[in-house]
Write a protein that binds this DNA or RNA. Structure first.
Lengths: 225, 225
DNA sequence: TCCCACCTTTACACGATCTTTATAGTCGCT
DNA sequence: AGCGACTATAAAGATCGTGTAAAGGTGGGA
């Protein structure tokens, strides 16, 4: 999942933002002053940085200037000022977006999502259709067919099958599947995989498409075209 | 290569934009007030004009109005105001796009590229009419018919249906739809999509045209002609 | 100004789907 | 063959997602 670095010295702001970002599944790291912010940016390699303009030690503009020498990470500036000069300076040294305090947390989340969309869009159209001897899977349409018979799968079932099909011939453990399908933030029983996989098998009709590797996991078997 | 004219009286903004456009290979010319902006537009014949709303001598709206009498060059308005009225006025007198300051230089570059793409495609409205087995949609006229029965849709309903129809067969998430229909600057509830989509379905009459993909989004199903 | 059309939010009900749990079945090893 | 461990499956309860109606808000046009 995407990584967000918050650089701000006001704990209340940091906590607020964190509280909104965590549930969205983002990995959040924080720094409360300029120098540690820079270090964190280097070590953590975030996808988006939320950067306060007013910071102890080194102000946001300074951070941004230095950051820009080594990276083109997406930076959203946070400022209490509404003064035009600040914005202009911020954008001049390379900020990508700007939010003035007080801001709506929802708006901030939306902007972060927009940023990530912009960043990730170049890779959008990967593997539109997975075609095998018996099974065909249109990822964009989320439709599956086996021997030209359309199969109706739920969201999780589709994602599960997709994860396996994208790794045809290789065993995926339950853990790996949980990670790919449920995302990192699942804390329930690992056996859910079994259950859903059973449903997938049943719906696919063909029991040879997915094989069990006892003690390890599951493997998708159909031959690619 | 494409020619861009920047009309803005703030040197910092002009420099910023220039700094981003030059490396992309654009030919950039600048003007710092209204009258010289107009002259430059005539002499330079740019492909895209970035026009500040607040200008000494003659404001951006005035420039745009005059410009439109003699040319249909692609104009992107720049404004510090976020007021809706400005936007509306700008678009009414013929702006093609709108960016509010502070803006992300990357976003601006992206918009310019989009503008050029639109200009350079043979016909401005690439898909003037979307035709399917049951539904027909005239994008320019904003008219829709199902089995030759004209359907009356509101602005949002039309845009929503259009976004889906243009991506026939693929699932669009609520987020994607919000982005396409409402633009990046919507921070409200996501469920608004459901409501409008419900209206569209009701008006279309045919429940098979748009299917729900539970947990993911919606998909337009009609076959293209 | 008032009115009307439209957009947005909210609430609720229904159904689909997910998760857990329990039990039966299967596999591999000795 | 027998044992232990792992897996398949069914069933039930909990949860989540969607459709829809209704209310409030907004802005444009008469």
């Amino acid at each position: 999942m995407a990584k967000i670095l918050i650089v701000d010295d006001e704990p209340s702001i940091v906590n607020l933002i964190t509280a909104y970002l965590k549930p969205e599944g983002y990995e959040v790291l924080t720094a409360s002053d300029g120098p540690s912010g820079l270090k964190a940016a280097r070590a953590f390699k975030p996808d988006v940085i939320l950067l306060d303009v007013m910071l102890p030690g080194m102000d946001g503009i300074e951070i941004l200037t230095r950051l820009r020498r080594e990276s083109d990470v997406y930076v959203i500036m946070l400022t209490a000022k509404t003064e035009e000069t600040d914005k202009v300076v911020g954008l001049t040294v390379g900020a990508d977006d700007y939010v003035t305090k007080p801001f709506s947390p929802r708006e901030l989340v939306a902007r972060i999502k927009a940023a990530l969309r912009r960043i990730q869009s170049p890779v959008a159209g990967v593997g539109e259709v997975l075609s095998f001897r018996h099974m065909r899977m249109d990822v964009a349409a989320r439709q599956v067919s086996v021997d030209d018979q359309p199969i109706d799968l739920t969201a999780i079932e589709f994602d599960l099958l997709r994860a396996l099909a994208e790794n045809r011939g290789r065993v995926l453990t339950r853990e790996q599947l949980l990670d790919k399908v449920w995302g990192g933030s699942y804390f329930g029983e690992m056996r859910v995989v079994d259950v859903h996989l059973g449903h997938v098998r049943q719906k696919l009709g063909n029991p040879d498409l997915i094989s069990t590797v006892r003690g390890v996991g599951y493997r998708f078997e159909d031959e690619p075209l």
